[in-house]
């Protein structure tokens, strides 16, 4: 019986957490569409997420593009299909690796800092102070981060795609002796608007999830430094897992 009780308890905890998250998301979304909107805060979050994530996302994309070119070349060389290298690089980046890797990097960078900042504000009563100063913490803290995540990640992914393709191009031309013009025209040949669209939709969803997880776990944190640490870990882990799950679901919707 103890075994069944343990399963039941775990299941109840799971349901409770799901309910809390659903309630949090619903409240956040309802504030997303109601004034006042804090423009200054949104811009500050956009700069934080968009601009300051450029180096890490750019480097990730560059090396991913380079590795893709090397790997697909050595693989395809086994059945004389080296010509497909450019197509493989661009499609994998735009449809899959650009959004997923940018999402994971931003989850580590931004999700963690959101959870730590909001969590610290929670345990030092700054969130209660906001409320007593006639400011809704959802509007002031959560909404700007959600908007910034939703809008900035697609822009980051566009940059990442371009840098990634450029990385592939560098390796193909300077290491694998491809013809530059042929490589570029091959890159553009099989890329469709639908591919780009799917990548950007993924990016927007991931950006929203990263901000949501960061805010949610920070907002729920309890009990001092340890609570904030746990919130930070949970924000990054849950955002990363959700990114991978949603990646599969969105791919299913777009390419089935």
């Amino acid at each position: 019986m103890g075994f069944l009780a343990a399963i039941g308890r775990a299941f109840l905890i799971f349901l409770e957490a799901t309910g809390r998250l659903a309630q949090f998301s619903a409240t956040a979304l309802s504030h997303l569409v109601r004034p006042p909107i804090y423009g200054r805060l949104i811009v500050r979050q956009m700069v934080d997420i968009g601009y300051y994530s450029l180096p890490v996302v750019g480097l990730t994309a560059l090396f991913t593009g380079m590795v893709l070119a090397l790997q697909s070349f050595s693989g395809f060389a086994r059945f004389q299909a080296e010509g497909a290298v450019a197509t493989v690089v661009v499609l994998s980046l735009v449809r899959e690796l650009g959004p997923v890797l940018a999402g994971l990097m931003v989850a580590g960078r931004i999700g963690a800092s959101m959870a730590a900042e909001i969590g610290t504000m929670r345990v030092t009563e700054q969130i209660d102070a906001l409320t007593t100063l006639s400011t809704n913490p959802f509007k002031y803290l959560v909404v700007p981060r959600l908007i910034a995540g939703l809008t900035m990640l697609p822009l980051l992914v566009i940059v990442a795609d371009i840098i990634g393709v450029f990385g592939g191009f560098l390796v193909a031309v300077y290491r694998l002796s491809f013809n530059p013009a042929a490589y570029l025209s091959q890159t553009a040949l099989y890329l469709t608007a639908n591919d780009v669209m799917a990548g950007l939709v993924k990016a927007a969803v991931f950006g929203f999830l990263i901000a949501l997880m960061g805010c949610y776990h920070g907002y729920q944190s309890r009990g001092g430094a340890q609570g904030v640490g746990a919130a930070t870990t949970n924000a990054v882990v849950s955002a990363s897992i959700l990114i991978l799950v949603c990646d599969y679901l969105i791919t299913g919707i777009f390419f089935s």
């Binding site: 900042e117 009563e125 700054q126 102070a129 906001l130 007593t132 100063l133 006639s134 400011t135």
Partner: peptide
């Protein structure tokens, strides 16, 4: 809530804002 002012135990000052922005917070946002 607009009728209330509260002094929190550890101050609960917003550490991302300067002193005057903290004091003016209720006036600007509220």
């Amino acid at each position: 809530r607009a009728k209330f002012g509260m002094l929190f135990q550890d101050g609960a000052l917003f550490d991302s804002l300067s002193v005057w922005e903290n004091v003016a917070f209720g006036l600007i946002q509220g």
